[in-house]
């Protein structure tokens, strides 16, 4: 019983960690690959082409 509760709790905390990592990851990629603000676009330009993001 205790073990089961503990393992469910560990899966939940694992899931929370994964969701947090996914969210930060998507945020970083929005900045480096998707956002069209001119300054960002120009700075990230060569990298976007090299990594095949849809760019301008």
């Amino acid at each position: 019983m205790t073990t089961k509760t503990a393992s469910i709790a560990s899966v939940r905390s694992g899931l929370a960690a994964s969701i947090l990592a996914l969210t930060i990851g998507v945020a970083l990629l929005t900045v480096s690959g998707m956002a069209q603000a001119t300054v960002l676009h120009d700075a990230a330009h060569d990298q976007r082409h090299a990594m095949a993001f849809p760019c301008h």
């Binding site: 990851g25 970083l28 690959g33």
Partner: peptide
């Protein structure tokens, strides 16, 4: 900037 944004992109993909 190309180096910097590669680090950001790969870290983003690494997190996912």
């Amino acid at each position: 900037m190309t180096v910097a944004f590669n680090l950001v992109t790969y870290t983003g993909y690494g997190l996912i």
